[in-house]
Design a protein around this nucleic acid. Sequence first.
DNA 1: CCCCAGGCGTCCA
DNA 2: TGGACGCATGGG
Length: 216
Amino acid sequence: MYLANTLQKMYEQMLSALGHQHWWPAETPFEVCVGAILTQNTNWKNVEKAINNLKREGMLTPEAIASSDLERLCELIKPSGFYRQKARRLIEFCKWWIDIGGIDSLNQMETERLREELLSIKGVGPETADSILLYAFDRPIFVVDAYTYRILLRHNLIDEDCDYETLQSIFMSNLPCDVQMFKEYHALLVEVGKRWCTKKNPKCKGCPLEGINSVL
DNA sequence: CCCCAGGCGTCCA
DNA sequence: TGGACGCATGGG
C-alpha cells in the first residue's frame, strides 16, 4: 500500500477511536509558546501547574517574563522540572519576542524565516519550534516527537535511524497541507503513544493502529 | 524502589 | 555527525 494511503488511514482510525483532542490547550499564542518550552521532556500535568502559577501572578506576558527575577521565575515554574534551564530559556524567548516586535511582526513573517528565527533561540529545538509554528502561528508544519518516531517504528513504517527532518517530510510530502489536520494528527499520535505505544506494551496491544502495516 | 514524561545543549570521539 | 550525559519535578 502507498505510504500516503497508510498515513491517511492511520489518521482516520485514530480520530475515529479517540475523537478530536482540542489541542493546543492555551488561550493565546504566547501561552502556546511558554507551554512548548516548559513541556520539553516533561509531563503536561506538571506544565499546567507551572502555567497556572504564572497566570496567578500575572506573569504570563513576554514583558513580565523578560524582566522577571530569575529566582522568582524558577519558583513559579518549578513543577515543570528542569526549571533552572527552562527559566533561562523562557527569558531568552521573551527577549527575542519583544526585540522582533511582538506578535504582529511574528504573524507577518514567512514560515521558513520564522522557523529559522525560532531555531536560533537557545533552548528551542526542532520540535519546540514546529509546535510553536503549528499551534501558536497556524503554519502548516507537521510536528514530530518521540511518540511519532516510536509509533512509526513499531509499525515498520520507518528505519531506526530516521532523523527528525526525514520523519517530518514523510508526513508533509504524503499528506494534504492542512493546518487543522496537522494539529489533530500530532495530538492523536501523542494520545495513542501515551496509551498504547509504551515500554510496558512493546507490541502495542489494543492500539487503534494495530495491523496498520500488516506486511511484516 | 523503579521508570518515565508532548527535548535541548554540551561535550567528546 | 552522532552518541552519552545532565537537567528535575511529579505521577504511576
